[in-house]
């Protein structure tokens, strides 16, 4: 994890804290495990707010859409979710990883 600085992406956690302080609902998605090739290592994070704004990433872009969808559900009910994406997943046809890897993403609300 790096701090934000000139020319760098905005920091995920401090952005999440700012959004939350501004009264927005915020969910945080974190890569907890990967198998095979996957673009983002464990610990990679994506923050989403209730307007659909997002910062950070949990993949090369292939699963972000579904993660954002789940994040909005987590914002509503406050229940964390563990999502699994990969070729072995029954939804692979829908949101499979093009790289052939498998990734587990934990989605939780900032509360």
């Amino acid at each position: 994890m790096v701090e934000s600085g000139p020319g760098m992406d905005p920091d995920v956690l401090s952005t999440a804290a700012d959004w939350h302080a501004a009264g927005r609902k915020v969910a945080l998605a974190t890569v907890v495990a990967t198998w095979g090739s996957s673009p983002r290592p464990a610990g990679s994070q994506l923050a989403v707010d209730d307007t659909g704004a997002m910062v950070g990433s949990v993949s090369g872009g292939c699963i972000e859409g579904t993660v954002v969808h789940e994040a909005r559900a987590v914002m509503e009910d406050g229940e964390p979710r563990l999502l699994t994406f990969g070729v072995s997943n029954e939804r692979a046809w829908e949101v499979g990883l093009a790289c052939g890897g498998t990734v587990q993403v934990y989605v939780e609300a900032v509360e």
């Binding site: 994890m1 701090e3 956690l13 401090s14 999440a16 804290a17 939350h20 945080l28 907890v32 934990y106 939780e108 609300a109 900032v110 509360e111």
Partner: peptide
């Protein structure tokens, strides 16, 4: 993630203290 814990994590990072967020 509870907000006070997030704030504490951000403070540790600002102070360049190594820290791990552990989730059961």
């Amino acid at each position: 993630m509870k907000r006070p814990l997030l704030d504490r994590l951000l403070a540790a990072r600002a102070a360049r203290t190594p820290v791990a967020m552990v989730t059961d």
